[in-house]
Design a protein around this nucleic acid. Structure first.
Lengths: 135, 135
DNA sequence: CTGTATCCGGGCCGATACTG
DNA sequence: CAGTATCGGCCCGGATACAG
């Protein structure tokens, strides 16, 4: 069994590494933020609570499915609180938690960087894409 | 043409919104960071340059395809500089740019938040997932 | 050593229909 | 109003093979 072992080792290393990443706090956070709608929902709620239909209107691009899924995830993570009032028809409001608010502040840093520097990125992009031989 | 118009309007609104998002600096940045390997490559390079094969080893989980693709993207965005030395066989080194370094610092803020708060998230998760009726 | 080209399976996500 | 259920297309990304 000599020939397979190198590949075996690589596979094991990969599995171990994946497991490591799965428990890494930074990676988990990044995975959360990677969800397209998470940041938008957080922003929509950061200064005031809103009802489900409010959010749908204010975020405009979301499908029902994605909004619900995102809100469930945020609720599960303790970033958003869901409150049901048994009126007819039922009323549901969402509000950001203290933890969620603290995350929103960090995300605001990203926003700040983006607003200062994304133009540089755009310029770099165009330079990269431009026909190089021109002079 | 009365019946279709409502849906039409919604579609137009969505398209406009998507276009808006596409040009939003924050969203673009988020899209960049969402790439699984971007942050890892940035981290791997933040304190010293490295060659392609170094990166493959140090990041362990990446496939060749993804590493190349990520590096190309970072180079295009002006976050990483690629240098080819025409030895035989060819030598390629990657180093982070000033812009890339400034982004890495912002990402470090995320890391810091994650290390302080992801445990709270995990706890919230377990509470949410736990069988609620138990007491 | 540093890639490029291709195939292909899985999962994300939107659209649609239905429910309490 | 606030969801759940299901289907289907698309793209991400890994594996593999090949190349300068």
């Amino acid at each position: 069994m000599p020939t397979q072992t190198a590949q075996q080792r690589r596979l094991e290393a990969k599995v171990a590494y994946d497991a490591y990443l799965a428990t890494c706090p930074s990676r988990q956070l990044l995975a959360t933020l990677s969800d397209k709608w998470v940041v938008l929902v957080l922003s929509a709620l950061h200064d005031r609570p809103a009802r489900y239909s409010d959010l749908r209107r204010r975020i405009a691009g979301v499908s029902q499915k994605m909004l619900t899924q995102t809100l469930r995830g945020l609720e599960r993570d303790g970033l958003v609180r869901r409150t049901v009032v048994a009126t007819v028809p039922v009323t549901v409001t969402y509000e950001i938690t203290f933890l969620g608010l603290s995350l929103h502040k960090v995300v605001a840093q990203l926003k700040s960087w983006a607003e200062s520097n994304m133009q540089s990125v755009t310029i770099a992009r165009h330079a990269y894409d431009a026909p190089e031989g021109v002079d």
